[in-house]
Design a protein around this nucleic acid. Structure first.
Length: 422
RNA sequence: GGAGAGGUGGCCGAGUGGCUUAAGGCAACGGUUUGCUAAACCGUCGUAGGGGUAACACUCUACCGGGGGUUCGAAUCCCCCCUUCUCCGCCA
């Protein structure tokens, strides 16, 4: 959420930002509504002031046993008028609310203007692309090894769901464990195991609601959502909290399955693991002071990179252009790993600085000293990293001549085996 | 799912329609005193939104879990919801 005063004073900037992000938001009514709102506030608050004073007089008269009927009759009219204006105000505020809650975060100046992912900027590469002994993508490899069953996933749940079997399941579990250990032991994160269903207040806090409602699984009977990322429970962990400045930056990480309806996405990268309805991910979340958040973002990106380096998977870091930067984010770096089978780059991590956008929605503050005014923190998060595409890349990059797959060195102790054989 | 008891400022806690402009205490912060620490004493001490200001100051309104309602007036009365605890039922 943007500060309403900021919107009022920078309307043109906000409009330009909407265009840059390729979002749709109608601000044509905003100034009028906002002006009306303040006019009504002034009017109704003056009446309330009058009511408070006369109410005190009535109390005094009654205490002295005197008659107050004429004052009371008068106040009936004032009260009716207040009720009327309060209703009007409520309507206008809800109109303003429905506009402002749909306004995307302001982009950082560092974000290049651009209309599609073509205009993202590649920041750096790491590692050499491996060539396969024979050409095979992760679907072919995993079928041959019998470690993934996409068809049974479709039978039991639907397309976009799959079973992991035997060493295939172990590898997935090992990956999660490895990543959590890495972040807690080497990057000083506190591990959190969170709920995987959350209420709508939480979805609003991180910015999924109201815009992304159709992309999430929702249980109507419970008014709860399956989380699309652990960002939601982890960031909302501190909803309505005031943090101590000595605890900042506060770094928490956690595993969660991620559920995404991906409505309307069929036709693009849907086969195998590239786009699924349920996948696993370790998420890093950072609560920072405003002056530190960009610095923390650089650290966050490097922490996600460390995972890929440890697993020796070639990757590149990409700065997203304006239209590719999500609703809540001010700036986002993606990590893309090389898929030797698909021969393309696959996104496995998205690291963003949200500035105070989520903090304002979720009401997360900090105080500089015990007596100073609370300020909104800056929130950041990044995948560290998502497993399914990483899993695919491991199969494709570690494929051997005989069709077996070597386990990356860093994972061997977690798996308890060195390779997956035919 | 059923029954009952709760939810008041950072924390504890009083408050059953007007003497509340939320008592009192603790913690925190500033100061006085003091060889130092402590204690004592004095003061400050919520959030949001209007108005106002160059910025302060100042001022008004709202907020006692959330939302409605009754009333001239609601922390207090009524309705709905959320949540915590206790007990019962069901359950991996």
């Amino acid at each position: 959420m943007l500060d309403i005063k900021f919107i009022r004073e920078n309307l043109e900037l906000v409009k330009r930002n909407i265009e840059l992000k390729n979002e749709k938001a109608d601000l044509s009514n905003f100034s009028n509504l906002e002006e009306t709102r303040r006019k009504i506030i002034q009017e109704v608050e003056q009446l309330k002031n009058e009511r408070n004073q006369v109410t005190r007089e009535i109390a005094n008269l009654k205490k002295d046993g005197k008659d107050a009927t004429s004052l009371i009759d008068n106040m009936k009219n004032v009260s009716d008028k207040i009720k009327e204006l309060d209703d009007e105000l409520r309507n206008i505020e809800s109109e303003i609310y429905s506009i402002t809650t749909k306004l995307p975060n302001m982009l950082s100046e560092k974000v290049p203007a651009g209309k599609s992912e073509e205009e993202n900027v590649i920041i750096r590469y790491w590692g050499d692309k491996k060539s396969q002994p024979f050409k095979a993508n992760h679907i072919e490899i995993s079928k041959k090894l019998g470690i993934i069953d996409f068809e049974r996933g479709a039978k039991v749940s639907g397309s976009g769901f799959s079973f992991y079997i035997g060493k295939g399941a172990s590898l997935e579990r090992a990956l999660i464990q490895f990543m959590i250990d890495y972040h807690t032991q080497k990057h000083n994160y506190t591990e959190i195991w969170s709920p995987f269903m959350v209420n709508s207040a939480s979805m609003f806090g991180t910015g999924q609601l109201p815009k992304m409602a159709d992309d999430m699984y929702y249980s109507n009977a419970d008014d709860m959502y399956l989380i699309p990322t652990a960002e939601v429970p982890l960031t909302n962990f501190h909803r309505d909290d005031t943090l101590k400045i000595e605890d900042l930056p506060k770094k928490i990480c956690g595993y969660s399955p991620c559920f995404r309806r991906e409505s309307g996405s069929y036709g693009k990268e849907v086969h195998g693991f590239l786009r699924v309805h349920q996948f696993n991910k370790v998420e890093m979340v950072n609560f920072s002071t405003p002056e530190n958040s960009y610095n923390q973002l650089d650290i966050l990106v490097s922490e996600a990179e460390d995972i890929l380096k440890a697993l020796e998977i070639p990757y590149r870091v990409v700065l997203l252009c304006s239209a590719d930067t999500s609703f809540s984010s001010a700036i986002t770096y993606d990590l893309e790993i090389w898929s030797a089978g698909e021969e393309k780059w696959l996104e496995v991590s998205s690291c963003s600085n949200f500035l105070d956008f989520q903090a304002r929605r979720a009401n997360i503050k900090f105080k500089r000293t015990p007596n100073s005014k609370p300020e909104f923190v800056h929130t950041l998060n990044g995948s560290g990293v998502a497993t399914s595409r990483l899993y695919a890349a491991i199969l494709e990059n570690y494929l051997q001549n005989d069709g077996s797959v070597l386990i990356p060195n860093a994972l061997k102790s977690y798996c308890g085996f060195d390779s997956i054989n035919l």
